[in-house]
Amino acid sequence: MDSKSKEQFVHSVFESIAPKYDRMNDLLSFRRHKAWRRYTMRKMGVQEGASAIDLCCGTCDWTIALGEASKHGRVVGLDFSAGMLDIGRKKIERLEMDRQIELVQGNAMQLPFPDDSFDYATIGFGLRNVPDLVQVLREMRRVVKPGGQVVCLELSKPTWQPFKGLYYFYFQRVLPMLGKLFAKRYEQYKWLPDSLAAFPDLNRLADIYREVGLRQVRAYPLTGGIAALHIGMKGSEGA
């Protein structure tokens, strides 16, 4: 699948699953995604007043968490799916955070913001779905200020047996059937394990972070390696 076809397919996937995305996330990750995000926020150490952009923000749970940690700092959530953003917008309005959080429908590979705009650039469970992950990481690095952080929370590849075998059985066989049962979507949830197959493992993604010019790269395996957190910093001189 070429990059344009992948972009169009992924867009159709997320538009179709948007109404049940939050429920399926809870079900399919056994609610671990919330614990992973809390752990990530602790590692980031977001300061009051800090600015952030959350790419592939989906229904905006992480965007909201960034806003709550920043308190009054500027937060932008960006996603290419209008359906996802509509659900996120309702959450933000319900929490009366719409003056602080701006939602933008846009492309993570071409961010509509100038260099050095944000203290943090984050992407949660979206990097494996983009046409060119290196380009997205370069864009994230570009828009963060010198000294700012580029943060990725993503599914990964466990290496420890027998857990690895059980995980792949669940992810490749059981997960798509749960998607069909609870969300009436089989092909869309079959895409999730397919998207992980070509995605870099924990160490390779850390290397890519360094290759795009990020420094002090830290990589943390989560829950036996089924997810991973990567944090890198833009050099103080922008290099």
Rank of each mutant, 00 (worst) to 15 (best):
K190N: 13
S51W: 10
K180E: 13
I226F: 00
V144W: 06
D207K: 11
L175R: 02
P158V: 00
I17M: 06
S81H: 00
V150P: 03
H33I: 03
D79I: 04
S70C: 10
L66P: 08
N203L: 14
L155D: 02
L205W: 05
I123W: 02
D201E: 07
M233H: 14
R204V: 12
H230R: 02
E68N: 12
S195K: 06
C57H: 06
L111T: 03
S16A: 15
C57R: 06
Y189S: 08
T223D: 09
K157R: 11
Y186Q: 06
M140Q: 07
A69N: 10
L133G: 02
W160R: 14
S51K: 07
A219E: 05
I87C: 07
K71V: 15
Y168S: 02
K43Q: 14
L222M: 11
R32Q: 13
N107G: 03
R215L: 13
K6W: 01
N25I: 00
R94C: 09
D2W: 07
S51Y: 08
V174K: 07
L127K: 01
Q149K: 15
G165C: 04
R94P: 01
G165L: 07
R32G: 01
F9N: 13
R210C: 08
E102M: 11
G232N: 08
T63I: 09
A227Y: 07
V75R: 10
R42Y: 12
Q172W: 11
K71N: 12
R37H: 10
S117V: 02
G165F: 08
F171W: 11
L166S: 07
N203S: 13
K4W: 06
R89D: 12
A239K: 15
H230G: 04
A65Y: 10
D115Y: 02
E48A: 14
N203M: 12
